[in-house]
Nucleic acid binder design. Structure first.
Length: 219
DNA sequence: GAGTGTTTAGCTCTCG
DNA sequence: CGAGAGCTAAACACTC
């Protein structure tokens, strides 16, 4: 495939607003880039009208599936978090069932899934599959969440995508706190399973993450 | 041979 | 513009 033929994809790295430079939690910002900006109603004044996502009208049949706004590690994590342990083929199945964009007979994304399983320490290769080739894959013991646990239908996922593009999504504060807890947990000292040594040096509380990064305002 | 797992390389894109 | 992240392609080895 030539570069010109290759489908264009957009990297979904968090977009940092200029205002972010004003706060002093830049060192924690990376922790909060795990889709936090997509699930938190950040900087949306109450009186600002909610933009409605224009429906894409396709004359013939349903709209073509769009690429989900998730990276491959995120997709894999969701599958593993939902199912616990999965073989590679089961991961394929989970993704293609949930996201019609990923066709079951398309080898390209499957290669990417395998690639990500191999290189990402977030995923752990377990025992051999009971039947068939391959191993069971699971999340690493101290893996941090890439996504909040949700169990949305495809239509709900579509709504999230639309909300993401509009930068607006209704999100209760408890979710924000969960996300912050996730971020904090990742930098609270943890015991290395193999060496027994402490893995992180600067413990940060959930409340500290929330407060310093302005995820919620204290009323 | 098919499916799986690993590795390498190259590309596009965002951010500093 | 360079660095880094994410995606894709391809080659190769291994297992069933």
């Amino acid at each position: 495939m030539s570069a010109a033929d290759r489908p264009k994809w957009r990297r979904r790295k968090s977009l940092k607003s200029p205002a972010d430079d004003d706060n002093d939690c830049a060192s924690l910002a990376w922790l909060l880039n795990f889709r936090l900006d997509e699930f938190v109603n950040v900087k949306v004044p109450d009186d600002e009208p909610v933009k409605k996502e224009p429906k894409i009208m396709v004359p013939d049949g349903p709209p073509a599936p769009r690429k989900p706004p998730y990276t491959y590690p995120e997709l894999i994590e969701r599958a593993l978090r939902e199912k616990g342990e999965l073989t590679v083929s089961a991961i394929y199945q989970w993704i293609s069932d949930r996201f019609p964009y990923y066709k079951a007979n398309d080898e390209r994304w499957k290669n990417s899934v395998r690639h990500n399983l191999s290189i990402n320490p977030h995923f752990r290769k377990g025992a051999r599959a009971p039947q068939g080739a391959g191993h069971l894959w699971s999340l690493a013991a101290n893996a941090i969440d890439l996504l909040p646990l949700r169990n949305n239908t495809y239509e709900e996922e579509r709504m999230i995508e639309c909300a993401h593009e509009a930068r607006i999504i209704a999100c209760p504060k408890v979710i924000v706190l969960d996300e912050a807890a996730i971020a904090a947990a990742s930098i609270i000292p943890d015991q290395d399973l193999f060496t027994g040594s402490t893995m992180f040096l600067n413990p940060v509380s959930t409340e500290q993450v929330v407060r310093e990064c302005g995820l919620i305002t204290v009323d």
